[in-house]
């Protein structure tokens, strides 16, 4: 696919089609990213910067998500004298839904936005066209390493967010609701199944790919200079948010209904 060739239509469906092709092509270049030394180095750098950019935010977000969950659920459980189940409730909510969800939100805000701005600036500065003219596919050189990095990093960060969230919930349980930590952890570990962990991590991986696709696509479709770059950044975050919600629902529906 030639990125810089005139776009074949502005309507929603042709945009979705182009974004979809961008995603498929970037996965077709996955072997190149793994085998080529330069491409591998780019991917490692992207992995590193994805992790570093997101880590501080996700630490705070993960911890507080767990604390809020712990407090709200704990207060509800206390009404029925069931505080011993606090760990289970926090754990299940976090690994199935909230962990991947907050990771997606943080990644989109911290990494996706920057990707859209970076590729958007490159597009309006003709750098993407220059790659194309030099027969270097921009999808291979720019998108594939970023996509791989998001695909790998997103589940890792989601796992990290879950751990911190569970800790946060336990902290609130112990300090505010008099739930012993050992009891909290026992309850948490008793409910967690491997399936929950896998669907949670799968969700995070899907969110990573969604963010990569949307951000790179918006970057490449940037027009009209600096204004366009701003708009591409904004659009990438909004569209990622919406898709994260929708895909989150769909994956939950797929794995937890009728089972």
């Amino acid at each position: 696919m030639r990125i810089t060739r005139e776009t074949s239509g502005e309507n929603l469906f042709s945009r979705i089609g182009r974004a979809g092709r961008l995603m498929v092509e970037s996965f077709a270049f996955a072997p190149h990213v793994l085998l080529n030394r330069d491409a591998r180095r780019t991917m490692l750098f992207q992995l590193y910067s994805t992790g570093i950019r997101t880590l501080p935010v996700i630490t705070v977000v993960g911890l507080f998500t767990g604390m809020i969950l712990g407090l709200q659920v704990g207060l509800a459980l206390r009404k029925f004298n069931q505080e011993m189940y606090l760990g289970a409730a926090v754990m299940i909510t976090l690994i199935r839904e909230m962990g991947p969800f907050v990771t997606g939100i943080c990644l989109s805000a911290c990494v996706g936005s920057a990707m859209a701005a970076e590729l958007g600036t490159m597009t309006v500065n003709d750098e993407v066209a220059a790659l194309e003219i030099m027969s270097i596919p921009p999808v291979r050189y720019l998108v594939a390493p970023r996509m791989m990095a998001l695909l790998v990093m997103s589940p890792i960060l989601a796992f990290y967010a879950c751990i911190l969230g569970v800790m946060g919930g336990g902290l609130v349980g112990y300090t505010q609701l008099n739930v012993p930590f050992a009891q909290y952890m026992a309850s948490a570990m008793s409910i967690a199944e491997l399936k929950d962990l896998f669907t949670g991590l799968l969700k995070a991986a899907v969110f990573g790919v969604v963010i990569g696709t949307v951000s790179c696509h918006e970057g490449f479709e940037t027009k009209l200079g600096a204004v366009g770059v701003g708009r591409a950044t904004q659009r990438s975050v909004i569209i990622s948010f919406l898709l994260i919600l929708m895909f989150g629902y769909m994956i939950t529906r797929l794995f937890y209904f009728d089972f």
Binding site: A129, M134, I136
Partner: peptide, 25 residues
């Protein structure tokens, strides 16, 4: 093609920019 703005990649040095087509293709 020499673009109006040069279209060099900002994170590569001049030498790396020039060698890019050789390296990648």
């Amino acid at each position: 093609y020499l673009f109006q703005g040069g279209a060099l990649l900002a994170w590569l040095t001049v030498r790396e920019n020039v060698s890019l087509p050789l390296r990648e293709t």
